[in-house]
Amino acid sequence: MNKIISEEEKLKHPYYKLMELRGEVLETELNTWNRLDLIEWLSWNDRNGVYKDEESMQEFGNILSKEEAIEIISRQITEA
């Protein structure tokens, strides 16, 4: 079931708030997040992506680093 979220609710949710950031502000914010929080955001934003450690090991033979996660999030946000 998809829940429709109002603009006001979006502005309160940290995942949506992140999507409003750009440039250095976005990178600075992402660098305060730990690797697992970054992976959770990626999984939330792209349900078909392979980000979680177990899935990533099975699919690619490695896990996503914090730096890679930041790069992917930045790209997903700026190219959206």
Rank of each mutant, 00 (worst) to 15 (best):
Asn31Trp: 05
Thr32Ala: 01
Asn45Gln: 11
Ile70Lys: 03
Val25Glu: 05
Asn45Glu: 09
Lys3Val: 15
Tyr51Arg: 06
Ile70Gln: 04
Val50Glu: 00
Thr32Gly: 00
Ser43Gln: 03
Ser6Pro: 11
Trp44Gln: 12
Glu54Cys: 07
Lys17Phe: 15
Ala69Gly: 09
Leu38Lys: 01
Ile73Met: 04
Val50Trp: 03
Arg75Met: 01
Leu18Arg: 05
Glu59Ile: 08
Glu40Gln: 12
Trp44Val: 11
Asn34Gly: 01
Ser6Cys: 13
Glu8Gln: 14
Lys10Val: 10
Ala80Cys: 05
Tyr15Asp: 09
Gly49Thr: 06
Trp44Asp: 07
Gly61Asn: 05
Leu26Pro: 02
Tyr51Ser: 09
Glu59Met: 06
Arg75Cys: 00
Leu30Gly: 02
Glu67Met: 02
Ala69Phe: 02
Met57Gln: 07
Glu67Pro: 05
Ser43Glu: 13
Ile73Gln: 04
Gly23Leu: 02
Asp37Asn: 07
Leu11Phe: 14
Glu71Gly: 04
Ile4Thr: 13
Ile72Tyr: 06
Asn2His: 15
Gly61Thr: 06
Thr78Glu: 08
Lys52Thr: 08
Asp53Met: 01
Ser74His: 11
Glu27Leu: 02
Leu18Trp: 06
Lys10Ser: 14
Ala80Ser: 14
Lys12Arg: 13
Met19Ile: 06
Gly49Gln: 06
Glu54Leu: 09
Glu9Arg: 04
Glu79Ala: 10
Glu20Thr: 14
Leu42Ile: 10
Asn62Ile: 11
Lys17Gly: 14
Lys52Glu: 08
